[in-house]
Design a protein around this nucleic acid. Structure first.
Lengths: 332, 332
DNA sequence: AAATGCTTTGCAACCGATTGCACCATTTTT
DNA sequence: AAAAATGGTGCAATCGGTTGCAAAGCATTT
């Protein structure tokens, strides 16, 4: 199939080592042999087999990218950013789609079979223990969108979900809503729990405002819509902090069903600020999460871990901010 | 780092070949040695290095998955389906995000460095020549969503875009619209051209109905919206066949800006039937493309090519159908 | 001219597996 | 009981590279 080192060496009239060194940055080769080798290589259309070299170097430049959120549009942005950032640095994403059927243990094994240099767990709906499994297996791992614990066991890059919960609460209070609700993501997602905690904490300062809670089954349009329809059938609050933008958009569609106008009739604030939230006829008021910075930083961190494998774990937390659009009524 | 064959062999008290054979389906090993090996392997936590074995077998089970549509929500569904279908068959997707900055030639080289067993080009906005480059390099390739030429040079799986264009035209005519327009994707996408061709062909049977044409800069919300805003500023047609769903949704948002009701004021028909199009408050009338079948079939085809590398190229075309929702007025 | 130091080069072992072949131990056949 | 067939095993070469080491090449210094 492919052209090999040996053939190039033969054509160039040098040893295999010489060829290998020409393609190894920083190795010592004279300009003369380098020229000969490059000529021969071009002639034959040679390019080194990355997998074969990984055998001796121990580096594959393959990075496992694990996720399970294939129904949340923000993940298109996430994949876009991750794949770009990785390939800009000469790393290759090996994707794992963690569906309900796939055994997590299998994917750990699989990624080790392909001897990935590192793993990025990109999901807040995967438990911290999952990321830790890689860590324990000796694979460098960063948990992007993971829980920003003060004492993380693995590297975490993301936002302070608790603080975001507080921020949402402050915002709803400032708008003068007399009753508020939290419509969170799946109950077992750390992000859903942390956002709720912050929300509750802040609302505790305003005991006169009743607070309700509910959780959607997933971070998806359908789940958000279904949950909001359920709430509307009962006695809904005046405003909701939704777990994220896609839930918010689902909720907005439920409001539309009931002929309710977002903002004036029922307020909605989301979290993420994905592209779609900016669409004019969605126009969602939301908390902006700096996706691009988070992902760039995650990949930076991966690179640094490749250099210093037993780096002391750190949490990189990025600040968020409210972006005002049309789904919350104006401050009084 | 990892446990190797040799260590397992030593612990089990057998030769390395014996260990290798235990993990090679269909190789001859006695139940007794197999048991010994499996015990030792479990004890050590061994799993074979897929990359090392690829050296001798010539199979990596790595499949290059190339795309460039990271701004069209349908691609989240596409990636979901592809990654699932591949991993169900024990294949691993190696993703390439073809951004404007990346040289296509580089990605060809890169995928060869990782000796992928095959490549899937998943985009209708990449020229057929691109897929052919892999073919010429001796890599099995299938072009999913590619042009369904009658004489394809590489394997193609997708739909008959020309026929879809006709179908859209027939639908608009049947609804009695007195003027129609085509709002296509990027001018250099084969899908945009083919859909236009079919649309024009069919409209030629109705010379009394004027037909206009325009092309958006990309398959994206922004592009669709911008183009429709431009059209609305002039003298718009009564109904549009939009290049795909995301363009349609962009167009719908432009209509909303002008206070126009889709269906009654201006008709819109899309193509794809992505999840989002079913959302109640989008509710797009569109031509359904059987994404899941197309992708399953693509992966099947890849698997078959691994068995029979110089399979005669074929085009697998899946039928589409109109799904009626709310953005076209009812048939008279 | 000999001694010194530095760079360049090739040899050969190795990375972690697979596999053709020869050999050996069992069965089965005659 | 001997011969033939069968199945299991290990040796050693191989896949496509990398790299430590020693020898060779070359220029500079004394």
């Amino acid at each position: 199939m492919g052209v090999t080192l040996k053939e190039v060496a033969a054509l160039a009239g040098v040893s295999r080592s010489a060829v290998s060194r020409t393609f190894t940055p920083g190795a010592s080769v004279s300009a003369k042999t380098r020229a000969k080798v490059e000529k021969a290589a071009k002639e034959l259309g040679y390019s080194p087999n990355a997998l074969a070299s990984s055998l001796t170097t121990g580096r594959t430049k393959l990075i496992g990218l694990i996720s399970n959120n294939f129904h949340n549009p923000i993940f298109l942005e996430v994949f876009d950013q991750f794949t770009r950032a990785l390939q800009e640095r000469g790393l290759r994403p090996l994707i794992v789609n963690l569906t309900d059927e796939t055994e997590p243990a299998n994917s750990v094994r699989m990624l080790r079979q392909y001897s990935v240099d590192a793993v990025i767990v990109a999901s807040s709906t995967l438990p911290p223990s999952f990321a830790k499994a890689f860590h324990d297996a000796g694979v460098p791992v960063v948990h992007t969108f993971g829980r920003s614990a003060t004492s993380p066991e693995v590297h975490v890059v993301g936002i302070d979900n608790v603080e975001c919960g507080r921020m949402a609460a402050r915002e709803l209070v400032a708008r003068g809503y007399a009753s508020v609700g939290y419509l969170g993501g799946p109950v077992d997602a750390t992000s859903a729990l942390d956002r709720q905690r912050g929300f509750v904490e802040e609302m505790a300062n305003h005991p006169q405002i009743p607070v309700s809670h509910s959780f959607a089954g997933a971070y998806s349009f359908e789940a958000g819509r279904a949950e909001m329809l359920r709430l509307l059938a009962g006695d809904p609050a005046q405003a909701y902090f939704c777990g994220d933008d896609i839930l918010s958009i689902g909720a907005l569609s439920a409001l539309a069903d009931h002929g309710l106008k977002p903002g004036s009739d029922i307020g909605i604030i989301g979290l993420n600020d994905m592209e779609m939230s900016r669409w004019e006829y969605i126009n969602l008021t939301t908390i902006h999460q700096p996706i691009k910075q988070i992902i760039t930083s995650s990949v930076d961190l991966v690179e640094e871990m490749l250099k210093t494998p037993d780096r002391y774990p750190e949490a990189r937390i990025f600040p968020c901010r409210v972006v005002e659009r049309g789904t919350l009524r104006p401050r009084p």
